[in-house]
């Protein structure tokens, strides 16, 4: 065994300005995609708080739902919804490049993998929508 190498050579440390992602539209879109995970996480924390209030009792739940009616929260959720859509689109497109699925000797074309992802997304969303509407109070 040779001696353990350092994680990365120390000789060359490129310096990047902190605003590199503003210098090209593609870098900016990359940053938006990364940012989508923040909005999704905040939404899920709000959802968790909503569940906690629900389990505390009907009064606490009603008060929390009332809070979510505030224009600020509606705007937040609309923005978060757009970020979530952007995450889904970029996720399935990236997955088609990462997942190499073979049928016989040929690779299933990436656009087919994208189509499967988008179809699954549509079907799952529709099923959840129908379930929530059927079981509504």
């Amino acid at each position: 065994m040779t001696a353990a190498r350092p994680d990365r050579p120390k000789m060359f440390q490129p310096k990047m300005p902190a605003n590199w992602w503003l210098k090209h539209p593609k870098y900016f879109l990359f940053m938006l995609r990364e940012l989508s995970s923040v909005f999704i996480a905040i939404f899920l924390v709000v959802f968790l708080i909503q569940i906690a209030q629900l389990l505390r009792g009907p009064a606490a739940y009603k008060a929390f739902v009332q809070t979510l009616r505030a224009p600020g929260w509606i705007i937040f959720h609309i923005v978060a919804f757009l970020f979530a859509l952007y995450h889904s689109i970029t996720w399935f497109e990236a997955a088609s490049k990462i997942l190499v699925i073979r049928r016989g000797e040929h690779r299933v074309p990436p656009q087919d993998v994208v189509a499967v992802g988008f179809t699954a997304w549509g079907v799952v969303s529709f099923v959840i929508l129908v379930l929530v509407l059927l079981l509504r109070s």
Binding site: I40, F43, F47, I74, I78, W91, A120, I128
Partner: peptide, 16 residues
């Protein structure tokens, strides 16, 4: 993957 499949519809239903 969970976020891509499930979060948009839940965000729409619960948030909006």
């Amino acid at each position: 993957t969970v976020a891509a499949l499930l979060v948009p519809i839940h965000l729409f239903l619960q948030g909006i």
